[in-house]
Computed example of a mutant assay.
Amino acid sequence: MKHFASLTAIAFLSLAACSSGPEEPSATASASADVEDIATEAPSADASEAAPVAAPAAVLGLEGLGDLKIGKPVPKGSTWAERGAQTSDACRTVSSPEYPGVYAIVEDGAVRRITLGQNSKVKLAEGIGVGATEKEVQGWFAGFRSEPHKYESAPAKYLTAPNARPGESALRFEIKSDGRVGLIHVGEMPVLAYVEGCA
């Protein structure tokens, strides 16, 4: 009986200790509060610096640019359209106000090449854009075939991916006589190598 009374007293004291004083939040409640505090804080400078520099749509890849895809028709309802450039039944060029300095060549109803020109801010995933040096290009794309430029004297040249062939999307650079990239093309041969739009 004495033993039972001691146990009761210990249980009572334990209960009193648990309920005395201000309530402390449980680990779960504390963690929830911390999450709420983090959620309501403004993003730090570090978070904004970690954001991507360019949206994926502003990157030219072997598959295309945004909704414009190599080997596919120009998407219906897109901003890509003929705008006073070369147009014929066999070959036409399209451009979009969303991508200044960029045009595409369409043959047989499908996009065969996309070209980045002088005013384009679009770049390749590697960060290479119009105005990059030949050295920067060679740093990423060693082994490209070199051919003399049709209209400019050396060191102007064309640098073309070794896998450039019909039915396979490839990359081609036009290096100007100042040693900088003047144009970047992605597309399928033989359209990839056209030197004057549709020719």
Rank of each mutant, 00 (worst) to 15 (best):
A31K: 05
A54G: 00
E24G: 09
A57M: 04
S26Y: 02
A57T: 09
F12A: 15
A54Y: 01
L62S: 06
V59D: 05
A16G: 15
L62H: 04
A29C: 04
F12E: 14
L62W: 01
A50W: 02
A17C: 09
A57I: 10
G61Y: 03
V59C: 04
T40N: 14
G61I: 04
E41I: 01
S32L: 01
A47T: 13
E23I: 13
A16M: 15
A42L: 07
A27R: 08
T40W: 12
V35L: 08
V35C: 05
E49H: 02
E41G: 08
S44D: 09
L13Q: 14
V59H: 08
P25R: 08
A39Q: 07
T40V: 09
E24Y: 03
P25D: 14
A31F: 09
A17K: 13
D37E: 11
V53Y: 03
E23R: 13
A57C: 02
A27E: 07
A16I: 14
A50D: 14
A57N: 06
E41A: 13
A33C: 05
A54F: 02
V35E: 14
P22L: 09
E36W: 06
P52F: 03
G21H: 13
A50E: 14
F12P: 07
A50Q: 08
P25A: 11
V53L: 05
V59E: 07
G61A: 06
L15P: 05
E49N: 03
C18Q: 15
G61Q: 07
S48R: 05
G61E: 06
